[in-house]
């Protein structure tokens, strides 16, 4: 009951009027969204709605865009991805995008490249290996030889090596076996409980609304609906379009 007296945590990310075009095609037609500290916010929508474009634009991988992206109060819309990552935000990309010929350990060391000292890299690496014991077993294997689930864990661990405050995740469960999907979602909850803020794009709508605090629904490059996870779960639009009710 004290809960209602707590003010909402402050926004760590505030996106205002974000527009992206690929040539003549407008992929994002003015997105507004905000992500509050310590929360999991999910971005739902059909294929081609613009979810991946939104994440890629926020983290700087799409350079040409209009609008404001306030991260920790600072507009990062014109910054390069490497600058943004060093400020504490990163992306676990769709399709995992691991480096097939590099070893697991090399992924972790590269992921930590932004740290200023070797000892802090070693510390975070040890932390990741504790969190992902399977990666310790595979430490010197080439990443291309890992299973899909192991590659996804490696991709998340690689992102976490930069010690982000905000992690954008693009389809982390895509193409994984059901029990591995559960594992990944347990992991996402674990990361949130440790204080990480997460902006999650997921195909699996019911699972992502289960773990999320807040959500946005996109269609044709716009936000068409937003609300707490409970509100979205109970809305007729979301039920009709995504939950098959």
């Amino acid at each position: 009951m004290l809960l209602s007296l707590n003010p909402l945590p402050e926004a760590i990310l505030d996106v205002r009027g974000l527009k992206v075009a690929y040539g003549p095609v407008e992929a994002l037609k003015g997105i507004d969204l905000s992500v509050r500290k310590g929360q999991i916010v999910t971005l739902l929508g059909a294929n081609g709605a613009g979810k991946s474009s939104t994440l890629n634009a926020i983290v700087g991988l799409i350079g040409k865009k209009a609008g404001n992206i306030l991260f920790k109060g600072r507009d990062v819309a014109s910054l390069s991805p490497e600058r943004i990552v060093r400020m504490g935000m990163t992306l676990t990309p769709e399709g995992r995008r691991i480096f097939p010929s590099l070893s697991v350990d090399e992924h972790l060391l590269l992921g930590g490249a932004a740290h200023s000292s070797r000892s802090s890299i070693r510390e975070v690496r040890e932390d990741m290996l504790e969190r992902f014991p399977i990666l310790r077993e595979r430490l010197h294997q080439k990443a291309g030889s890992l299973s899909g689930g192991e590659q996804q864990m490696l991709a998340i661990a690689r992102s976490m090596m930069s010690s982000p405050e905000l992690l954008l995740m693009d389809e982390p469960s895509l193409g994984l076996a059901p029990q591995v999907v559960d594992l990944i979602f347990d992991l996402i909850i674990g990361l949130r409980d440790r204080g990480l803020t997460i902006l999650l794009v997921e195909q699996n709508v019911s699972l992502s609304l289960e773990v999320a605090d807040y959500g946005y629904v996109m269609a044709n490059g716009r936000i068409v609906l937003s609300g707490t996870a409970d509100e979205l779960r109970n809305s007729t639009e979301v039920q009709g379009a995504y939950l098959g009710a």
């Binding site: 983290v59 490497e82 060093r86 480096f99 097939p100 090399e106 590269l110």
Partner: peptide, 17 residues
Amino acid sequence: RAAAEDFAIVRLMGIRA
């Protein structure tokens, strides 16, 4: 070596292109 496989992702490690 990583950039030869996927340059964009290397930038996501905070490494300057």
